[in-house]
Amino acid sequence: MADVTVDIYTKFGCGYCFRAKRLLDAKGVAYNEFDITMGGPKRDEMMQRAPMARTVPQIFIGAVHVGGSDDLAALEREGKLDALLAG
């Protein structure tokens, strides 16, 4: 479905991460998942892309920083997620 790149930064055992991925999976969206449980360069990358982010998941659709699981769900409820995914 997605014509844009979707990136999601997650941690092991994160319920919010699971919920966000479940929504994306239900919509048939392919995404790049970056597990930052142990920190490392991908955590640093997430912090550069979203300097105020302190929680996971952090979701990016194209150049847009969506935010977390609740933000993604809100876009879906408002009917705005599909348009964002379409580019």
Rank of each mutant, 00 (worst) to 15 (best):
M1G: 14
M1V: 14
M1D: 13
M1L: 12
A2P: 12
D3S: 15
V4K: 12
V6I: 12
D7V: 14
D7A: 10
D7G: 02
I8K: 02
I8A: 00
Y9H: 06
Y9A: 07
T10P: 04
T10G: 08
K11V: 15
F12W: 11
F12V: 13
G13S: 10
G13A: 08
G13E: 07
G15V: 09
Y16T: 06
C17E: 07
C17T: 07
C17A: 13
F18C: 05
F18P: 00
A20T: 08
K21F: 05
R22Y: 06
R22K: 15
R22Q: 15
L23W: 04
L23V: 11
L24C: 03
D25T: 08
K27W: 06
A30W: 03
A30I: 08
Y31R: 03
E33S: 11
E33C: 03
F34Q: 10
D35F: 05
D35E: 07
D35T: 08
T37N: 03
M38W: 13
G39A: 10
G39T: 09
G39N: 10
G40Y: 11
R43C: 06
E45D: 15
E45T: 12
E45V: 12
E45R: 13
M46I: 12
M47T: 14
R49S: 10
P51W: 09
M52N: 13
M52P: 00
T55N: 04
P57R: 00
P57V: 00
Q58A: 03
I59D: 01
I59P: 00
A63E: 15
A63G: 06
H65G: 14
G67Q: 03
G67L: 05
D70W: 02
D71N: 09
D71W: 00
L72R: 01
A73M: 13
A73F: 10
A74T: 11
L75R: 01
E76V: 07
R77Y: 05
R77E: 15
R77K: 14
E78F: 02
G79T: 11
L81S: 01
L81Y: 04
L81K: 01
D82E: 14
D82T: 11
L84S: 06
A86D: 13
G87Q: 03
G87E: 10
G87V: 14
